[in-house]
Design a protein around this nucleic acid. Structure first.
Length: 806
DNA sequence: GAGTTTGAAACT
DNA sequence: CAGTTTCAAACTC
């Protein structure tokens, strides 16, 4: 896929493009440091919405994986630990929770993985091959994160001799960290009471520091990213969705010291110095942000550098999904000192909302919200960025799925935009250093929302049962989950997308199909905005396989996959949300006339002519998107949004302009959306208001029609059932003393014979010129005779059966 | 299924 | 911003 000129980069949210945070990561992380996460019940704040998770043993059980990784789950918490080379998979049996588990078993034959140790491979419907050191798979409401470490990495880890195992028990949330191959990725739940797990990584981390950039796209403008960083860690929370944030962090230095919160705009977060915000311990902090209009802000938690190993067990930002189901909180906590090998990031994530956490390779461009982690392992470490973006109006995550290694394609879902974006990322070689080409790396202490330099990232994600999944994968187990296998060490945390309509301001400008080229000097990173349709298609369960490192043709591959049937089902069939095919003829499906285009979807199974709404015409499509956005920056935002404050009802964002339809036909967008016209409508002769008698009549008619349809459906169902039952009964089955009634013997043959008799009788009547009444009588008589014979036969059969004691 | 109506989107 | 044209969906026959 071609990368669009940097001009389009402006469309890309800063969170994505900004990579300064990564650069800021100290490259010199000397000795393999050990990060211990200590369970600190006192300081840790339990997730309110955490749901108990049953032991997940056996879900993805593998002897090797088990040996390498430890997963512990308690009632309400899960702790997952994995060795560096070990593939880490996060899966939760219960939908609301995320679980990290080794998923070797998930590999399929079609997918080829090079990791000798794990050998994890994931195949999606066999459509695409995916080989990558990391595999993330999500099942229904579950996120499965697999890390497949390259053999090299494994060897290094072995040689290092460091345990590289992080075990945490009693943690409620799981956080996924993606690192390059060989680098330990640690997903851990916050410690509830037991000892915090310890993740150790050894290796030379100086030149290679894994960087994690977390971009969360969430709710409306209310978004407020919360960044908690012990030194370079950045945590992003969506302010909108984040109403309550509890961060409990306990460090050996001081367990009780509260962490200072610095709230700054993500863009300006650079200015922060680590010291100013340094607080070794974060406990029980609650952050509440409700203002919807508030621009995204970043709360940066910084800790003074600690040379000592840190376990961030207590570090946790808990967001109550229950209270704020739409909240998305990403909190990353990293050890302040570069020496600390691992850093844990706690991510409360509302999976139910479909929010997605994306991990994106580092880009040079500066992004307000970043989570950067430096890995302790000396081996190849690729900086990974996960960006959390708070949507303006919606609480959706942005998901970036790396599709290929060179270039990698990552899918990004923008909250509220209903678009899925694919980011093209040039895979970095394992040998490549983690340092991005961007700005100086010394800027770690900068106020950037979050830079986490840790070998391991701990994430805790409270998941709320998904209520409305816009996109549901067909298979139950992996419905919303995406499994991404990347050859590189990229992290990929994919969460179900939510239908939330609103878009974050930054991503509002990120139209579907947009390909974002890396900023000059940013490296080979590009973003392609892909319609949700493709994401859904790519999310085909059980696993979505993204192109392997071998020359993946992003656009072609995606397009092909999108159109290929999966599991014998067409893409349309596999797509949970049915979409009307468009019939565009003149617009080339590149104008908002086209519903597909307007919805940020590629045309698929449409009836359009000369369609350009596909990746094959990405250039034209991008241009069209840009044109639309130039004309109306909110062109791709959902038209139906929440009303003003205090107005519970939805309403059209622009209002309708109907003149002749009375706003009582589907021409009217308000009526079509089943909402009342509001004061902003400019319609003439509007009858679409509450007291409108026409509307009431229409609604009654509609209700009546609906009832009628339901009744008919019920009647058909009942009739079908009865017929089926009758057929079952009419089957001449002679059972022991069944006491079958005569009609049981009315088989097809009997019916045919009876009909022949009746027809014969009718012929006789006709031949004898009998009057109609007499003919009918004769026929009825014959029918009676037939019935008598049937009954008689039934009786005999019953007697015979009884006589032979059958 | 063809033709008409309608209103949003696009254009001037 | 207003008027006009274009467009595709909704609707009618």
């Amino acid at each position: 896929m071609d990368v669009v000129s940097p001009e389009l980069n402006s469309l890309l949210p800063d969170e994505i493009m900004d990579t300064e945070a990564i650069e800021d990561i100290p490259h010199s992380q000397s000795d393999g440091t050990t990060v211990q996460s200590e369970p600190d019940e006192d300081t840790s704040v339990p997730m309110e919405t955490d749901t108990p998770v049953a032991s997940e043993s056996g879900f993805c059980s593998d002897a090797t994986s088990a040996a390498q990784s430890l997963i512990t789950s308690t009632d309400s918490t899960l702790s997952i630990s994995s060795g560096n080379p070990i593939p880490i998979s996060i899966s939760s049996l219960s939908s609301p929770l995320l679980t990290l588990k080794p998923c070797l078993a998930t590999s399929t034959a079609t997918t080829k993985t090079t990791d000798s140790v794990t050998g994890t491979s994931i195949t999606t419907s066999g459509l695409q091959k995916l080989s990558a050191p990391f595999t993330i798979s999500a099942a229904n409401h579950q996120i499965i994160l697999n890390k497949v470490a390259s053999s090299q990495a494994t060897e290094a880890a072995k040689s290092a001799g460091s345990p590289q195992v992080i075990k945490q028990e009693g943690q409620k949330l799981l956080v996924t960290a993606i690192g390059k191959s060989g680098q330990p990725i640690v997903l851990q739940l916050p410690h509830t009471g037991s000892k915090a797990g310890v993740a150790q990584t050894s290796g030379d981390t100086k030149s290679q520091t894994p960087q994690f950039k977390v971009v969360t796209i969430g709710g409306r403008s209310e978004l407020k990213p919360v960044v908690g960083s012990s030194t370079n860690q950045v945590t992003t929370l969506q302010a909108q969705q984040l109403k309550t944030v509890q961060i409990a962090k306990k460090t050996p230095a001081s367990s009780a010291a509260p962490i200072k919160f610095i709230i700054t705009k993500t863009v300006n977060s650079k200015g922060l110095s680590p010291q100013s915000s340094v607080s070794p311990v974060i406990a029980g902090r609650v952050l509440t942000q409700n203002s919807p209009v508030m621009p995204a802000r970043t709360i940066t938690l910084t800790e003074p550098h600690n040379t000592s190993i840190q376990s961030i067990p207590g570090k946790k930002i808990a967001i109550s999904p229950l209270k704020t189901p739409s909240k998305v909180t990403v909190v990353s906590v990293a050890s302040p000192t570069p020496s600390a090998p691992q850093k844990s990031v706690t991510l409360p994530v509302n999976v139910a909302l479909g929010q997605q956490i994306l991990t994106v390779q580092q880009s040079t461009s500066a992004s307000p919200v970043k989570v950067a982690t430096s890995q302790t392992t000396a081996q190849n470490i690729k900086p990974v960025q996960s960006v959390t973006v708070g949507g303006v109006s919606g609480s959706q995550f942005k998901t970036i799925i790396p599709l290929a290694t060179q270039p990698n394609v990552q899918q990004i879902q923008v909250p509220g935009s209903r678009f899925h974006y694919v980011r093209l990322v040039t895979a970095t070689t394992a040998s490549s250093t983690g340092q991005p080409s961007g700005p100086s790396t010394s800027s770690i202490p900068t106020a950037k929302p979050m830079v986490v330099s840790t070998g391991a990232v701990r994430m805790s994600v409270p998941i709320v049962p998904a209520q409305t999944m816009k996109q549901v994968a067909p298979k139950p187990l992996t419905s919303t989950a995406q499994v991404v296998t990347a050859t590189q060490t990229q992290q990929r945390l994919i969460m179900p997308a939510t239908p939330l309509p609103q878009i974050q301001p930054n991503f509002t400008n990120l139209p579907p199909g947009t390909v974002l080229a890396p900023a000059p000097g940013a490296g080979n990173v590009g973003y392609a905005v892909v319609p949700a349709q493709y994401v859904t298609q790519l999310q085909q369960p059980p696993f979505v396989t993204l192109a392997s490192s071998s020359g993946f043709q992003a656009s072609a591959g995606i397009q092909t996959q999108a159109r290929l049937p999966l599991n014998g089902l067409s893409t349309a069939e596999t797509t949970s949300r049915p979409r009307k095919p468009c019939n565009c003829t003149k617009s080339q499906c590149l104008k908002l006339y086209c519903d597909c285009f307007a919805n940020g979807e590629f045309c698929n199974n449409c009836n359009c002519n000369n369609c350009f709404n596909n990746l094959e015409h990405e250039t034209e499509r991008l241009k069209a998107i840009k044109t639309c956005l130039d004309r109306n920056p909110e062109a791709f935002k959902p038209k139906i949004g929440k009303g003003k404050e205090g107005e519970s009802d939805r309403r059209h964002s622009k209002g309708c302009n109907c003149k002749r339809s009375g706003c009582l036909k589907n021409y009217c967008e308000c009526y079509e959306a089943k909402i009342m016209c509001s004061s902003i409508c400019k319609c003439i002769g509007c009858k679409n208001f509450e007291e409108s008698p026409e509307r009431k009549t229409l609604m009654h008619l509609a209700d009546a029609a609906e009832v009628r349809v339901q009744q008919q459906t019920a009647a058909k169902t009942k009739l079908s059932s009865q017929i089926s039952d009758l057929l079952m009964r009419t089957t001449p089955v002679i059972s022991s003393g069944g006491g079958r009634l005569p009609y049981t013997f009315v088989t097809k043959e009997v019916l045919e014979a009876t009909c022949e008799c009746l027809l014969e009788q009718a012929k006789r009547a006709e031949q004898t010129h009998q009057p109609q009444a007499e003919a009918e009588r004769m026929i009825l008589e014959e029918f009676g005779h037939c019935l008598m014979r049937i009954i008689s036969s039934a009786g005999k059969a019953k007697v015979d059966c009884a006589s032979i004691n059958c």
